[in-house]
Amino acid sequence: MLHPERPSTDQTAGFRHGPDYTLEAGLAEKGYQLIAGADEAGRGPLAGPVVAAAVVLNPDDIPSGLNDSKKLTAKRREELFDEIAVASRAVCWHAANHATIDRINIRQASLRAMAMALGGLQTGCDHALIDGRDVPPGLSVPALAVIKGDGRSLSIAAASIVAKVMRDRMMLRADIKFPAFGFAGHKGYGSARHLAAIREQGPCPLHRHSFSPMKDA
């Protein structure tokens, strides 16, 4: 791997209709061969883990239709998840559970999960593109933080899909274990049904006690 450089942030506003491979191609021209995109899902929910993923796409076999996971249907995310798993050079995901979130806060838990996902890539990587404003500390490779990166970089978009699908699957399992909270529907976000269930049942073991309304109680 190359020696790490100072982390930087891409402040350029993107006016695309969707993500493309421009950032990756620019890095490839500089000699980087294994470029990973990293993103997370689940910063906002009141329960469950935050899940991060890292993906090294194969530039010769990029699945069609990659986009910010929030702009895709659940069915389309599942389809693309399978295509990403087959076509990519490497895929890795990591979850930071509710207890970790409560202990170190959601921002730090998200960054740690992204660092773990990047570190777990089978091929490794020699440069990372990170969704958002922050680069996880301690990376062994240079990295660029890309604001709204899941709508700008195909690699980050792929990571956003993997992270979202994995987290949704976890919350579907949580719904089986704690059916009173309706996790299958809202995936832990603060919907009216979810908030009503917390008031009626009290929090379950998957709730984040550093988040309101648990924190307020």
Score class of each variant (00 low, 15 high):
1 M>D: 00
83 E>G: 00
105 N>G: 08
36 A>I: 04
205 P>G: 02
40 E>C: 14
96 A>L: 09
69 S>W: 07
138 G>A: 05
116 M>H: 09
152 R>Q: 07
129 L>K: 12
150 D>R: 15
119 G>I: 12
56 V>T: 14
154 L>C: 06
40 E>F: 10
20 D>G: 06
60 D>N: 06
212 S>P: 14
116 M>K: 09
170 M>E: 12
30 K>H: 04
113 A>H: 08
39 D>Q: 09
7 P>A: 00
7 P>D: 00
211 F>H: 13
178 F>H: 15
202 G>L: 06
86 V>K: 11
148 K>H: 11
81 F>K: 14
13 A>H: 13
129 L>T: 06
115 A>N: 03
147 I>M: 14
214 M>K: 02
93 W>A: 13
31 G>Y: 12
47 A>W: 14
139 L>D: 01
7 P>W: 08
25 A>R: 09
96 A>M: 11
101 I>G: 05
211 F>N: 08
199 R>D: 15
19 P>L: 04
142 P>Q: 00
40 E>N: 12
106 I>F: 13
134 D>C: 11
74 A>V: 13
30 K>Q: 08
87 A>L: 01
183 F>D: 00
4 P>R: 15
18 G>M: 08
101 I>T: 13
41 A>Y: 12
56 V>K: 03
207 H>R: 14
70 K>V: 05
144 L>V: 05
123 T>A: 03
195 L>H: 13
156 I>S: 01
100 T>L: 12
88 S>A: 11
175 D>N: 04
68 D>A: 00
76 R>E: 11
99 A>F: 05
68 D>F: 13
132 G>R: 13
3 H>P: 01
111 L>K: 07
125 C>L: 04
104 I>R: 14
165 V>F: 06
13 A>R: 11
193 R>H: 10
131 D>I: 13
156 I>N: 02
89 R>F: 07
108 Q>F: 13
158 A>W: 09
